[in-house]
Design a protein around this nucleic acid. Structure first.
Lengths: 239, 239
DNA sequence: CTTGTACAAATGTCAGACATTTAATAGACT
DNA sequence: AGTCTATTAAATGTCTGACATTTGTACAAG
C-alpha cells in the first residue's frame, strides 16, 4: 500500500493524523505491513517532519502502529488497537467504510452490553434523563419520513443511545456511551433504511423508552435486545 | 502548587509523563489551576523542552490538561478525564488511594458487566482460554494460605478476571478487561483478606471456571455475580 | 560456517530561532 | 472620565538542521 491513494491533506497536524488513521481503520494496510517512512510522508503531503512525527505519535498511542528506531514503522494487529481510546473514537466519526471485522465486534459488544445498560437505566433514570430520551425519540419520529432529514435522524438515534448510557448513572458506562458514539453512528450509516424497517425500528425504540419510564428493568433489557436485532437485520448480519 | 514536592525524575520521557500524571491523580493540583510552564518544568527536572512537550502531549490526550497558545496550561475538571484511556490505566497502576466515588462506580460497573462477560466466555472459550483460566485459578489456590504470597495472589486474581474478559473473544470486551486491570487490582488491595473469606472467594471463582468449562452460560453469569457479591462484602460495601 | 566490522537507513533527541495566540498595558481621542 | 486602539510581553506552536541511537545488511577474515 502506498500513499498515492489517499486524498490530499489540508489543514493542521490533527488532520494528517486523522487521514492516516482512517486509512488504517479502513483496512488499507494489513497487520505487519511496514508503514511509509517519516520523510516520505512529509514529502508526499508537503508538511514538515514535525507534523508527521506528531501525527505518528498519536497513531502509536492509539495502538495502531509500532515504531522502533532503525527498523521503521509497522502496522499492529487489530487485537492491539485501543478501540476505546478517545482519539480512535474521534477518527472513527465520519468514517463509513469500517473494517468488517470491527463492525461485527462492535455490534456483538453492543448486543451484550446495551440490554444491561437499559436495565440499569430503568432503575436509575431521573426526570432529566427521561426528558433527554423523550427529546431524542421525538426527533427520531419527526425525521423518519423525509429522505433529506436522514442525517438528522441518525443524530437523534445516536442521542437516544447516548441518553440511555447516561441514564445508567454510572461513570464507566457513561464514558463507554460517549466512546461508542461514532461507532453507533457508523453502524447506523451502514444500515439499510427503507420506510417499513424504519417504522419497525421506531416501534422497538419506543418500547425501550416506555420500559425505562415504567422502571421495568426486565422489559427494558428485552426491548433493547429487540432494537439491536433490528439493527442486525439492517446491517445484513442476519436476515 | 509548585514542582518542589515532586520526587526527582530519572529515566525517559515516559517517566516524566507518569510522574506528572500521578501528581495530578493524587490531587496535587485543583481543577482550573494553572500548570507550570514548559520551560520551568524543563529547568526543574533538567530535561529538554522536547521531553516536557512530549509528556504534556500525553497528559493533554488523556484529558488531564488543556493547553492554549498564549494563555498557558490549565488543569481540567475531573469529569473531563478520560478514565478509559490506556494511558490513564497505566498511570493508575500502583496508585492505591483511589477516590471512593471512583471505587464504587467501578464496582457497580463490574457487577453489571462481568456476569455478561462470563456468559459470553462460556459460549466462546477455547482450549487456550481454559488453560489460562486454569493456570490463574491454580495460582490463586497455591498462594491462598501464606501471608507473604499476598501480592502473588492478587496477581493471579487479576489474571483470572483478565482471562475471563479475553475468553469472550470480543475485541471490545477484551480491551475493557485490559483497561480495568489496575482498577481491579486496586479493589483487591482494598479488600479484607481473612482465611475464611479467602476460602469462600476461591470456591466462588471455582464455580465460574467450572461453568465456563461446561459451556453453561447461565451458570457462568450466576457464578460471576456471586464472586462480585463476595468482593462487595470484602470491600465493606455490604455486610 | 560463523563471527566481527563497517556502513546505511530509520527513528529519537536536541537546540535555537521564529510564528502565532492571548492577555495586559499604555496612550490617544472623544 | 471613558473607550477604543496600538504596542508589548508571555506563553504555546512550528520549523529547521544537526546529531544520537538503534537496527539490519553486506562483506571479509578466521
Amino acid at each position: 500500500m502506498t500513499l498515492d491513494a489517499l486524498p490530499l491533506h489540508q489543514g493542521g497536524a490533527e488532520n494528517l493524523a486523522r487521514l492516516l488513521a482512517q486509512a488504517l481503520l479502513a483496512g488499507h494496510w494489513q497487520p505487519g505491513d511496514v508503514f511509509p517512512r517519516e520523510l516520505d510522508i512529509g514529502a508526499h503531503f508537503n508538511v514538515s517532519r514535525n507534523q508527521v512525527r506528531n501525527a505518528l505519535t498519536s497513531l502509536t498511542a492509539a495502538g495502531l502502529l509500532e515504531r522502533t528506531a532503525g527498523r521503521g514503522t509497522q502496522v499492529r494487529d487489530i487485537g492491539d488497537w485501543h478501540l476505546l481510546d478517545p482519539l480512535m473514537s474521534e477518527w472513527m466519526s465520519g468514517l463509513i467504510n469500517l473494517d468488517p471485522q470491527l463492525v461485527s465486534a462492535i455490534y456483538a459488544f453492543r448486543y451484550s452490553a446495551e440490554p444491561v445498560v437499559a436495565g440499569l437505566a430503568a432503575q436509575a433514570a431521573q426526570a432529566e434523563d427521561l426528558e433527554r430520551l423523550d427529546n431524542a425519540f421525538m426527533g427520531m419520529e419527526k425525521t423518519a419520513n423525509s429522505a433529506e432529514a436522514r442525517a438528522d435522524h441518525a443524530e437523534y438515534d445516536v442521542a437516544f443511545h447516548d441518553a440511555t448510557y447516561r441514564a445508567s448513572h454510572n461513570l464507566v458506562w457513561r464514558q463507554m456511551g460517549h466512546l461508542l458514539r461514532p461507532s453507533i453512528m457508523a453502524l447506523i450509516h451502514r444500515s439499510q433504511h427503507r420506510t417499513d424497517t424504519l417504522d419497525d425500528s421506531l416501534a422497538r425504540h419506543r418500547q425501550v423508552l416506555e420500559a425505562i419510564r415504567n422502571r421495568d428493568a426486565h422489559a427494558a433489557e428485552t426491548a433493547a435486545r429487540e432494537v439491536l436485532r433490528r439493527t442486525a437485520i439492517d446491517l445484513g448480519i442476519v436476515s
